[in-house]
Nucleic acid binder design. Structure first.
Lengths: 185, 185
DNA sequence: TCGTGAATGTACCGATTGGTACAGATTATG
DNA sequence: CATAATCTGTACCAATCGGTACATTCACGA
């Protein structure tokens, strides 16, 4: 596939934040235009498929980031315990210590799940499986590893919801530390 | 306050489902009308404040339901361990074994949080505090009780997100059983 | 300096949004 | 039956939605 204009790449993080803050349907072309400083002409030039293509590009970037920065290290780091610790630290940074919301989680709860269902499931499954792998390599019995991983992935999502519901971002860090204790304890 | 027409009460559960499925902004008057079988005239007669009043009424019903069926029993049941078990069973039933989403959680993640922020926080705080109370009465040290409660409330939200992301409602029941083990173990 | 294609802003499209106005139907009360 | 209050459907409103069309501007190679 032909390389898209460079500007496109720069837009994706902005689009990500807009989708995070407003959700898929809530992210109108008006607010996207305002945040990117671009008119519809430019937006549709970079993303001929409109909003759907924008969201798809954002999802692709997120998938790639998590694969590179979380899943692969969890699977491949020779020190699985260190990898688990590092992955939780990266998670805290990525979600801005609870001030940022998980776009995939938001999508999962909304109507857009029908549109991106496969990729949403893949994002979560990738996380769970990578964590399962690390836990197993750290000595956990396979079944227990998978259970713990499933629990941790869900707990992270829940911590993001709760931190936002309480309007208390610090809750996210507390949750991550509890999760780390459970995983490594 | 004067009692609203009886029809109003019957509408609220329907409105709740619509808001759950579509979110606040996604629940257009068109779909609300279709689901309730009522025209705008009737809807605005029952809820002069429009969508905001509808959502507010739904939230009020949810708050009351949780207070009556979860929070108060957790605080008052002389057998706190039985109360915790019962509250988790009620939770599984309420969320239809993971097929139903938490409206308050959905609101917390969306833009509507600005509109209902206080009540969203109160819903979560009520849950956490009631569970903290039961755990303390069951013999947990106060700090540990509160931590466990916070973790459990977040975990329930996370389990709902994950169950929907994986499109695997059974995950919710699994999570609840793990939570029960942690709380009572 | 010119030409060319990419990049961009703007006007516009039909559809839909939340909300209002109001006339007519329905119901309860005398 | 008559009258009044309560409901309810429909037509309508301005604003906004996602998306298209197109004329203009821009950067850059020949």
């Amino acid at each position: 596939m032909a390389p898209r204009p460079a500007g496109r790449a720069a837009l994706i993080p902005i689009l990500g934040e807009v989708f995070r803050e407003h959700g898929y349907e809530g992210a109108s072309l008006a607010v996207i235009g305002a945040r990117t400083g671009l008119g519809k002409g430019s937006l549709y030039h970079a993303f001929p498929g409109g909003k759907e293509e924008m969201a798809s590009a954002v999802l692709a970037e997120i998938e790639a980031w998590f694969e590179d920065n979380l899943y692969r290290p969890l699977r491949e780091d020779p020190d699985p315990r260190a990898a688990i610790r590092a992955s939780l630290a990266a998670t805290e940074t990525y979600f801005r210590s609870g001030r940022r919301v998980c776009l995939v989680g938001v999508f999962a709860l909304g109507e857009v799940r029908d549109r991106f269902g496969e990729r949403i499931a893949r994002y979560f499954a990738g996380w769970r499986d990578a964590l399962t792998d690390a836990l197993a390599r750290a000595g956990r019995p396979p079944g227990e590893a998978r259970d713990l991983a499933e629990e941790a992935v869900a707990a992270i999502q829940g911590a993001l919801v709760a931190a936002r519901a309480f309007d208390e971002p610090a809750m996210f860090g507390r949750s991550l530390r509890r999760i780390e204790a459970r995983l490594l304890g």
